[in-house]
Design a protein around this nucleic acid. Sequence first.
DNA 1: AAGGCTATGCTTATCGGTGAATATTTTCAT
DNA 2: ATGAAAATATTCACCGATAAGCATAGCCTT
Lengths: 141, 141
Amino acid sequence: MLIGEYFHNLDTKGRVSIPSKFRDDLGGTFVLSKGVNDCLCAYSKEEWEGFKEELLGLRGADARMLRRFFFSGATECEIDTQGRVVIPPLYREYAGLGREVVIVGVSNCMEIWDKAAWEKYMQNPALESAEIENAMERLGL
Amino acid sequence: MLIGEYFHNLDTKGRVSIPSKFRDDLGGTFVLSKGVNDCLCAYSKEEWEGFKEELLGLRGADARMLRRFFFSGATECEIDTQGRVVIPPLYREYAGLGREVVIVGVSNCMEIWDKAAWEKYMQNPALESAEIENAMERLGL
DNA sequence: AAGGCTATGCTTATCGGTGAATATTTTCAT
DNA sequence: ATGAAAATATTCACCGATAAGCATAGCCTT
């Protein structure tokens, strides 16, 4: 299971070390995709396969558009012998990654954030204890 | 699996480099066909066979029309020793290809778009974050 | 036969990806 | 606390992919 928060650095070639605790869950190659809040989202092959089948099962014009969106916004990544992956330039740009990034485990996927963006996001008032408590209550947790 | 988005240029002779990550999946020769939404669609021989069978299995007037469209609008292409293919003039014209094109992986086929047309297509309101989040929820991501 | 056209291939430059080597930091067991 | 091992950071050198321009060969036209 992918959980935790890790602070890492991109090297000058745009590579980043994957937290060693994540490597077994992710596998040697995984799928990196553009996430919803200006972050990158990495799925193990198994996770991605499930999603892919769902997408391929859809029919109609909207389905074609969704397929184009999700498949075009993803790329296969391979972890090298030193535990690193290259974040392609397009993806670095999309997520606004500087040198310092944060790698976050979200149970079934791993997210990569620019450090500043992550810290800003975590300051969101919706994440204060009271709000968290409210949300939990609404969801019956 | 064909995924990702690559920005390439046609040379003055109408040739374009196929992303190196796609070459294994596509094979040395593939089938280029006119796609839906003013793009070109490239299938590996295997994928094309599947598509062909699907088309041949259909009955009725619409089916006849689709068969004429897709079979007349397809041609075999060969990747040269430098990883390029010639896009015949008719196809360049059909998809409105200028110098800058985008090559998109859509899981089972590869699409070639004029850069401007692709960017316009991807601005569709149905692809705003809220819609995407809905779609992801439905698809179990 | 000469000139020009087209298709194809070759060459070079640039950029990004890859792999190795080493340094540094962290973790863990003793 | 200390040392060993693992994880992460950093740098360098090399290789491969792409872009662009040029060269060659075959073919058509005149």
